[in-house]
Each structure stands twice: as C-alpha cells, then as structure tokens.
Simulated assay, not measured.
Amino acid sequence: MTKWTVDQAHSTVGFEVKHMMVSKVKGQFDEYTATVEAADLTDLTTANIAFNFDVASINTHSTDRDNHLKSADFFDVENFSDITFQSTAIVKDGEDYKVTGDLTIKGVTKAVTFDVEFGGKGLDPWGNEVYGFEAEAKINREEFGLTWNTTLETGGVLVGKDIKIKVELEVNPAA
C-alpha cells in the first residue's frame, strides 16, 4: 500500500443545506486531515480512506452563523471537536465508486456512502503524480443529533434536514 498526501491547497471539504426552504447556505471546513492508502489510485477498491474535520474551522462566510454552528445548538465544539470518516467498503460502479464508511458527528456514528468520481491523473510541473476525485453524500443532520431549528412565519423551517457533503481532492504520493 502506498500512502497518498491530500494537497490541501487544491482540495476542499464542503457542505450545503437549504436555508428558509428557498436557497442554500454553503460552507466548508478549513482545517482537516486525510489519510489515503491504496495500492493504485486508478482502482480505489484497494484503498483505505480516513478523514478528520476540525469543527472549529467551519466557515460559511458569516461569523455569527459560524459561531452558532459551533455552539451546543449544533456541533457543540466544546464537547465534540471533530467529525471523522473511516472507509469500510469500496465498490466500483462503472467508471466511478461507492465509498461506504463510518461517519461520526457529535458522537453519533452512522454508515454513509459517498458517490466518488475519478477525475483523472497527470503530472504536475515538477514531475509528481497527481490524482483528482470528487465525492458527494447526502445525510439527514437530525440523525446525527443536529436538531436545532426554528419555524418560519410563512410555514416551513429555517434550516433544512438534508446536508450535502462535497469533497474535492487532489492527491499525490507521500514523500
């Protein structure tokens, strides 16, 4: 197995959720670590993938909203500082993959499957191998204890239940 390094300057770990049932709020985790081990990244079925997101690094481009998300109403950063993912099964699906693993948010662990698209491989200007992947999964935030909400005067709620997690990775062999 080869260890691969995630190039954080060319990767993002983001999410989106419905706001007021009419638009989307997007955000990301600015601080995270990732471990990718695989014999060959052109065949992810051999891979072991793990992520650790620092919840305090949440960034939705609104300080007030970020502070609310860090509070006990949502992620409760004081007691649950990290979100983790550990792959448990990877299946090839045509040209793409289904990566299933244990996602832990706020102390609750659930199996989640990411649809992963292989973006391709190439060489950077210094001759290093570079591989690209895009992954997406949808979770119900309430299943992970993220239940805060408020009812709107017009009906509906302020924050949607479904969260899309979107990961874009560029990886190279570890030095």
Rank of each mutant, 00 (worst) to 15 (best):
N79L: 04
Y131I: 07
D115A: 13
A137V: 08
N52C: 07
F29M: 04
V116R: 00
R65C: 01
N79H: 13
S81W: 01
A111T: 07
G107H: 00
R65I: 04
S62T: 05
E134S: 12
Q8W: 02
V77E: 04
N48W: 05
Y97L: 07
A34N: 11
K26F: 12
F80V: 01
P125F: 03
D124Y: 11
F80A: 00
G145Q: 02
L44N: 07
F133C: 02
F29A: 01
D40W: 11
R65G: 01
K70C: 04
F80L: 07
T2M: 06
A39D: 14
H19K: 06
Q28K: 12
K18W: 05
T100A: 07
K138H: 09
A50S: 10
Y131F: 13
L123M: 12
D73C: 07
N48K: 15
S62L: 11
D82H: 08
D7V: 13
D102G: 02
K24M: 11
V13H: 05
S57V: 08
G101C: 11
D73E: 10
K92I: 02
E31W: 00
M21N: 14
P173S: 14
T63A: 15
E170L: 09
G127H: 02
M20R: 12
W148Y: 14
K3Q: 14
I139N: 01
Y32G: 10
D76I: 08
K26N: 13
